[in-house]
Computed example of a mutant assay.
Amino acid sequence: MSTRELNLLTDGRVELVARIPRSSNATFLVRVSCGEDSSYAVYKPELGERPLHDFEPGLYRRERAAYLLSRHLAWDLVPPTVIREDAPLGVGSLQWFVECDFREHYFTLHTEAPEIHGVLAQLALFDVVANNTDRKSGHVLRGHDGRVWGIDHGLCFSAVFKLRTVIWDFAGEAIPEPLLRDISALAGAVPEDVAELLDDEEVAALQRRVARLLREGVLPIDRTGMRYPWPLV
């Protein structure tokens, strides 16, 4: 992604286009524009969040934290995401809209595109590090340029391990050494811009998850058969 995307998201005028259906929380397609330049983004205002017993209000901060974590790892698995205080419905996250074929999702991609299995396994590792509790199949996109993206990270970073994901095809496989090197620094310190979006217990839990991954060197196995989101897609 170029600086254009971040500039539009950070400084562009935000115009509501439509509400995105079938989302648990109020989610909107918006147009962001700076002068003659414009594009689409996904807006998730705090005002539209459903109250949850296990996550405090402000899920938009976790959307931003997931993007920053992916960027610090140089994995670029999460579309550019910013926090806007001046959006039409108040503070929330603004994420670059991925142009893709929405008939594709994790299950179809895993079956029909074996050449991207390495990236899918990398996304599985990212979800363990971030403690993603909601990796549905439809939250994995392949852009028209062929890049794979993970979206919808509002339910990440809990201090309690509650991983729920559809990406179990790589469970038990060894994590490639380059990826272990990428995450190793997180065991000692979480980047400040990520940590400031979480509480202290969540930061410490992230470090413990990374330390365990480094120690075991494999992607976890779900021995309960229960660690799936619903609906699956």
Results as ranks from 00 to 15, higher is better:
V82A: 10
R209H: 13
W75L: 11
L214T: 05
A211Q: 14
L94W: 13
E85H: 05
N7I: 03
P21V: 04
L198H: 10
E104H: 04
V190Y: 11
S137E: 09
L77V: 12
A205N: 09
R19D: 00
L68C: 11
E177K: 12
L16T: 05
V30M: 02
T27Q: 06
H110P: 00
A174Y: 02
G35K: 13
G146H: 11
G118H: 05
F55A: 04
D200T: 12
G138S: 03
L120D: 00
V14Y: 14
V17I: 15
L125F: 04
A171F: 13
V30N: 01
Y43F: 15
A189F: 12
G146E: 08
L180M: 06
A66C: 14
S2Y: 03
E216F: 12
R212Y: 11
H117V: 07
R13S: 14
K162T: 00
V190R: 10
L186C: 14
V203G: 11
T108L: 12
G48K: 13
P229S: 00
H53S: 13
P191F: 07
Y228A: 03
E56W: 05
E49D: 00
L179C: 05
R223Y: 07
R71D: 02
P79V: 02
R64S: 05
E36K: 09
V42Q: 07
L73F: 14
P51D: 01
T165I: 10
P80W: 02
T224N: 04
V140N: 12
G217D: 01
D200F: 11
G92V: 05
E49N: 00
G217T: 00
F97P: 02
R215D: 14
L123T: 05
E104T: 03
I151K: 08
G92T: 03
G48I: 13
F97Y: 15
L120K: 00
L73T: 07
L59R: 13
G154I: 08
S137R: 11
F126R: 02
S24G: 04
A204G: 10
N7G: 12
S70Y: 10
P79E: 01
N25H: 07
A113Y: 01
P57M: 06
I83P: 11
S38G: 11
A74M: 06
E177T: 12
S70T: 09
S24K: 04
R227T: 02
E46I: 04
L206S: 05
A113M: 06
R62E: 00
V82L: 12
V148S: 07
F102G: 00
